[in-house]
Structure formats: structure tokens, C-alpha cells
Write a protein that binds this DNA or RNA. Structure first.
Length: 181
DNA sequence: AAATGCGCCAACCGCGTGCGC
DNA sequence: AGCGCACGCGGTTGGCGCATT
């Protein structure tokens, strides 16, 4: 197992200097062999910590700050579809990391999702309509799915979900892969 | 103004998986 | 086939800042 447990290693928040060191090292050598990165860069950190810092913060394409409405809606819908598969959800939202999405879910969306579950079926259709029109107008770069099918309001009848909808091939193949195992 | 509570986010931890030897 | 290393994932925790009393 990867157990970088070493009492002498730095832990906790990263300093600006550490960030710079790590970013420079990765820029020269690439984001791989994190244990080597940790040692050769001179950072007194474990490889795991370096990897996480790079992925969640230092990567040039990582988008930080507020989630747009479209991103939020997408997270809600994807979570309803596939559950706590944060990395999968993150792959569908450019610039967002699994950790960030997970945090955002726990901080903001969990309550919201619960609330929505309690609402009568009103308005899944109405919500969807809203959703699409908002997304059409906000012009995000989200790799949007075109339709999420329907139903599944109570959150535990996944098999009734229509993953054959356009744009959901990835979900379909994902589910098929899961079934194969 | 001080104390306390709460929410949010960054980071850590443990475990599973993939891959090379 | 078995082993060890490296990576990736999801759950959890710690600390900071803001709001409330």
C-alpha cells in the first residue's frame, strides 16, 4: 500500500513557497511518480499530498470559485444518476475537481437535493424546462448532456432511468461496465 | 467586545485497483 | 501467480472565518 506515513513530513496547509516549488517541479518533470516528486523537489511532503495539491489547486486548468447554476444543476442530476461517484461527475465538468465537487455537494447541494426529494413530483418537468433554458442562456463550457430522461424522483430506482437518451452514452457504458464486474 | 456555534474548504486517511517485475 | 509500488477514489477531519448571541 501507499503509506507515506512519516512523522517528520510536513502536514497541513501548503505555503506559497511550497506551491511554487511543486508547480515548478511538475512543470519540468510532469505530474507523475509523486513519491519521486516529493523527494526530488525537496518538499518535505508525502507523494500523496503533492498529488492532491497539484490536482486540486495547482493544475493550470483547474477552475476555482463559484459554481454556476448550470454546474450546480449538472451536479445534482449526475449525482442522482450515479451517486457519490465524484471523480466521474468531475470528468463531466471541466475545470472542477472531484474534491471540490464533493465539498460543494456536502456544503450546499446535499440539503438542496433533500429538499427537492421532498417536493412532490411537481415539477420535475418544470424544473427541467427551467434548467435547459437557463443553460441555453448562460453559455458555459459544460459538456452538457442533452436530456436526462426522467423520473427517478425518489432516488432509489436507478434501473428505471433512461440512459439511452442522447448524450448519456457515457452513463450507459459506465453502467454496463459496472454490471460486467 | 468577547464567546460560542456553525459552515465551508483544504487536506488527510484508508482502501481498492492497475501495472510492472 | 505473487508481490510491491504507484495511483485514484471516496469518506472524514481539522482549522479558519463568519454569524449569532
Amino acid at each position: 500500500m501507499e503509506n507515506d506515513g512519516n512523522a517528520s513530513l510536513n502536514k497541513g496547509a501548503w505555503s506559497a513557497d511550497e506551491d511554487t516549488t511543486l508547480a515548478q517541479y511538475v512543470a519540468h518533470h510532469g505530474p507523475k511518480r509523486w513519491k519521486t516528486v516529493a523527494i526530488k523537489s525537496g518538499l518535505n511532503r508525502c507523494g500523496k499530498s503533492c498529488r492532491l495539491r497539484w490536482l486540486n489547486y495547482l493544475r493550470p486548468d483547474v477552475k476555482r470559485g463559484n459554481f454556476s447554476d448550470a454546474e450546480e444543476d449538472l451536479i445534482l442530476r449526475l449525482h442522482r444518476l450515479i451517486g457519490n461517484r465524484w471523480s466521474l461527475i468531475a470528468k463531466r465538468i471541466p475545470g472542477r475537481t472531484d474534491n471540490e465537487i464533493k465539498n460543494y455537494w456536502n456544503a450546499h447541494l446535499r440539503k438542496k437535493a433533500k429538499l427537492m426529494e421532498k417536493l412532490p413530483a411537481i415539477s420535475i418537468a418544470a424544473m427541467k424546462e427551467n434548467l435547459w433554458s437557463e443553460e441555453a442562456s448562460c453559455g458555459t463550457e459544460i459538456q452538457e448532456t442533452e436530456d436526462i430522461g426522467g423520473g427517478n424522483e425518489d432516488g432509489d430506482d436507478d434501473e428505471s432511468f433512461d440512459v439511452s437518451a442522447p448524450g448519456l452514452n457515457w452513463v450507459k457504458s459506465f453502467l454496463e461496465l459496472e454490471e460486467d464486474v
